[in-house]
Design a binder for these strands. Sequence first.
DNA 1: AGTACCACCTGACGGC
DNA 2: TGCCGTCAGGTGGTAC
Length: 263
Amino acid sequence: MPELPDVEAFRRYLGATALHKRITEVVVKSRRVLEGVKSRRLREVLKGSRVEDSSRHGKYLFCELDNGQYLVLHFGMTGFLKYFKNEDQKPDHQRLILHLENGYRLVYDNQRLFGRVFLAEDRERFIRKQQLGPDALAVDFKRFASILSRGRGAVKTTMMNQQMLAGLGNIYTDEILFQARIHPKTKIAGLTEEELRNIFDQMKEVLEEAIEARADPRRMPETFLLLHRDENCACPRCGGPVKKISLSGRGSYLCPVCQENPE
DNA sequence: AGTACCACCTGACGGC
DNA sequence: TGCCGTCAGGTGGTAC
């Protein structure tokens, strides 16, 4: 699930729920998700504090605490946040539970344990340490073009590399390339300036529309490929069959008519 | 240095 | 019904 638009949706969800509420108790249900911090330390820092602000860089969510520290959440493939009061509403794979002063809980759920929870003192230093590229939604064209041109392989692989650009995953990269009518295997070096510009514009467009839809596919435009991610589904542009290929080990969906293979 | 592939986890789904 | 292989929206390490 969680690529940039999903994490942005979690951020807004946090803003509408647990923000500014005092954390009264902290339960680490799975210490495997903790990265670089022990349960005890995490509890000490979180207990009694409040999340006063939130921000996002790529797929990372930064929860700024009133003690100056940051609770940093990464969701892996299956993570999400859930705010609830009654026990019968609790999600199936709670990994970190924050009890709040109003009797509600904010839960970090993560079925496959690929997500990570960090504690950071400095947001920018954390981003540097993780070697993240600029956020895909914040980057300007000049920077985008110069970063992408460092890639030697397929355009999709480069766009998904978090050290190049932070925030794009498998689904949205497919979507952007579909909208830009570029085949995912196209080599970066083979792209014209115009095509690069088009990819950039579509990246912004797709991300903004997905955020607008609260990362919920049911609210997304019918023209989105991600609603038709199935082999032989009809391409929303030309009606031809959608094709699935494998690119660096990931399933990639595309329309072979709209996205011509350069080879 | 850059890129490709596997492993890490759990669960859902389709075929037999 | 049950077992098995395959696959899933991420990423780190390792091998070229």
